[in-house]
Computed example of a mutant assay.
Amino acid sequence: MTSRAGARPTATKTEGNDYKPKERGGPTPYQMSMSCRSEIKKLTLVQLLIWLLVAAQVTVTHLELVSHDLVAAPYQWQYPYLLSIVPSLLGAMAMPRHNISYLVISMISAGLFSVAPLLFGAMEMFPVAQQLYRHGKAYRFIFGYSAVSVMYLLMLVALQVHAWHLYYSKRLLDAWFDSTQDKKKK
């Protein structure tokens, strides 16, 4: 068929260079929410594992299930750190119903019950670590390893996990706020 302008051009083969997708501003709030929720669930499991290790040390030493030569007595920072399970539980309770208030309380309590005891513990154990570094003497052991070395390693991992948990919680909170703002606009 011909048109008034003449014959139509024949189709040519292209390699896809003429296709231009729509530009997007980034992931939707739903995609962001699902991504952050997945990461938070993984981090919560790691937090639970760290909490169980600290709780096991405290329980084993207080019930005297093993000798103090095998597992050293806990440091003072470990007792308030046992409350770090509270922010994890509040965060888990916030997920199913997108409860913003639980998530905010979880983030605030994570700073108080998780990060603050870790920072206090780093200061509490610093003289012992300094003595170990300078003189090579350790007086507390956990399964044959220096207790201060094991605790600093645990604290390093825990601090990273809590920091990532706070980061993803903040991103999730932003996604939830964006989705509620989108609903209000409609």
Score class of each variant (00 low, 15 high):
M1A: 12
T2R: 14
S3W: 03
S3G: 13
R4C: 02
A5E: 10
G6Y: 06
G6T: 00
R8Y: 09
P9L: 08
T10M: 07
A11S: 11
T12H: 13
T14D: 08
E15G: 10
D18Y: 13
D18I: 07
Y19K: 10
K20L: 09
E23G: 09
G26H: 05
P27N: 07
T28R: 04
Y30W: 04
Y30E: 12
Q31D: 06
M34F: 04
S35T: 14
S35N: 11
C36T: 02
I40W: 01
K41E: 11
K41P: 00
K42R: 15
K42G: 14
L43R: 10
L45I: 14
Q47A: 09
I50S: 06
L52T: 01
L52N: 03
L52M: 10
L53A: 11
V54P: 06
V54H: 06
Q57R: 14
H62C: 01
L63S: 11
L63W: 06
L63Y: 06
L63D: 04
V66W: 00
V66K: 02
S67I: 02
H68I: 02
D69V: 03
L70K: 03
A73R: 11
P74A: 05
Y75T: 11
Q76S: 14
W77K: 02
W77D: 09
Q78V: 00
P80L: 07
Y81L: 14
Y81N: 03
L83D: 01
I85G: 13
V86T: 01
L89Q: 04
L90S: 03
M95N: 03
R97P: 00
N99D: 12
I100L: 12
Y102L: 11
Y102S: 02
L103S: 04
V104S: 03
I105C: 04
M107H: 03
M107R: 13
M107S: 12
I108Y: 05
F113Q: 00
F113W: 02
F113D: 00
P117I: 00
L119D: 00
G121E: 00
A122M: 11
M125F: 02
F126D: 09
F126T: 12
P127K: 05
V128D: 12
V128H: 07
A129S: 09
A129L: 09
Q131R: 15
H135R: 09
H135F: 14
K137M: 07
A138N: 08
Y139N: 14
Y139T: 11
R140F: 03
F141A: 04
V148Y: 09
V148H: 10
M151G: 01
L154N: 06
M155K: 01
L156N: 11
A158Q: 07
Q160E: 05
V161A: 07
V161D: 02
H162S: 10
H165R: 12
L166D: 05
L166S: 11
Y168F: 15
S169P: 05
K170G: 08
R171T: 13
D174A: 13
D174T: 15
A175Y: 06
A175M: 05
A175P: 07
F177R: 15
F177A: 10
F177L: 15
D178M: 13
Q181P: 00
K184I: 13
K185A: 14
K185V: 10
K185S: 12
